[in-house]
Write a protein that binds this DNA or RNA. Structure first.
Lengths: 238, 238
DNA sequence: CAAATATAATAGCATTACTATCGTTTTTGC
DNA sequence: GCAAAAACGATAGTAATGCTATTATATTTG
């Protein structure tokens, strides 16, 4: 009975979550792709197509063929393919931030809270049925192998001024604060956490393509435990 | 007198170094750019131009205008701009590997040796007068902001098979062995070192463009000390 | 000094990365 | 339920990119 209630409570919380629209910075699109069927189709199939052929080979022309619309229509939603990449990247981090907040909320132990936070940013992603037009597993693969191209560009400073990377920074900020909850005198929480977030992605990529650069094999748990261990080692040694 | 001899010895070692040609995997070019004046000019100005306008905006056409040669001539040296990026990246890591070997050679203390190795891969780069057509400072900036584009591509597996990333892997392998010299039972030396090498680059980039993701400010020494501390903390805590 | 090789000059072509126009469908506000 | 507005599809067009090809001239090498 208690179990039942508990499960029921989770379900209701999840329902609450399912009603949350992932709000992405409005400057990232011309017309909100979440406001129409076509817009969702564009985002859905761009994730499929980028995952398939890579961002360099990806063009609006090819995407148009895939969804049966002319490329000019896609240009009504996104300025260019780079902005679409920034958009889906931003969507991903917004989605992850909700999961981060959900997972760490009401956890009284600061250590347990930080552990959960590290897990969220380092463990493999599962499909989230609340957003049916987004394949989070494929999106995660894109984030790992392509999203750096959204950050390492000559326009990074202007993009940053426009707030394109706000959600990403917010996640790093949140987890940094959890670090400080444990060790208020720790001097480099942001450096530590940004290293962990990017490092986890890299290790996943290396394990699949350049395995001699890792020791994690195809065991994703090792990535979680390595970086968890890394963070707590650093906190222990100042 | 002793000091003089010491200085003299260094000079001779350096002279030895100056005669070393940086040998890059022959599959990376069509005609060895190091075999002609024009080839060196292509490499020299590609570094300037990529640093100036970024890799996306960089084209053989623009490079041709810069050096006063038609683009078709550049195509006789490199298959395309991506291969040129792989080439200069590979040149950089080969150069850094020599410096790594030079700096850690004959250091009897394993801790001191590892410290020096970490410094080589995390500290700022200085101009090396031995290779007058290469601006190592600008090249380092390119490595930090563009070289991931040489690794994160759909062709990564074939490129890896061809040995394009061999030198990079060799550096990680060397430093991993230094880690094992100190802690033979440490389970994740490659993961640790590849995280450090890439992490140091990222922190440098973040400090210049996304400063809220770091705590290092514009103090490069903090990057060296953070990652040195990170490695030794991990070794201490298994 | 001849033969081989490298380079410059030029042209050309398919694809990319957009922008513009215009008729038709769909949505919306009353 | 209908008119106005907005969105979409179809098509065309343009400058730049990413190459390849050709030929004449210069340079190197045997």
């Amino acid at each position: 009975m208690l179990l039942y209630l508990h499960a029921n409570k989770l379900t209701r919380l999840e329902k609450l979550f399912s009603s949350i629209k992932i709000q992405v910075n409005e400057k990232l699109f011309i017309k909100d792709p979440d406001s129409s069927q076509l817009g969702k189709k564009i985002v859905e199939h761009s994730i499929y197509l980028i995952d398939e052929i890579g961002f360099e080979e990806f063009t609006f022309k090819k995407l148009g063929v895939r969804i049966g619309s002319p490329e000019s229509t896609i240009y009504r939603y996104f300025e260019n393919k780079h902005m679409l990449l920034v958009y889906i990247t931003s969507w991903y981090w917004t989605w992850l931030e909700y999961r981060l907040v959900f997972s760490t909320n009401n956890i009284s132990s600061p250590e347990e809270r930080l552990k959960r936070a590290i897990a969220i940013v380092t463990e493999p992603v599962k499909q989230d049925s609340n957003y049916s037009h987004i394949n989070e597993v494929k999106l995660n693969r894109i984030i790992i192998s392509e999203s750096l191209k959204a950050y390492f560009t000559k326009e990074v400073d202007e993009a940053n001024k426009e707030g394109f990377y706000m959600v990403y920074k917010s996640i790093v900020q949140r987890i940094s604060e959890m670090v400080l909850d444990i060790s208020p005198k720790f001097k480099h929480p942001h450096t530590l956490i940004s290293t962990v977030v990017e490092g986890a992605h890299q290790q996943k990529y290396f394990s699949e393509h350049l395995p001699s650069l890792t020791d994690v094999g195809n065991n994703d748990d090792k990535i979680v435990s390595f970086f968890t261990n890394l963070v707590f080692s650093m906190l222990k040694n100042g």
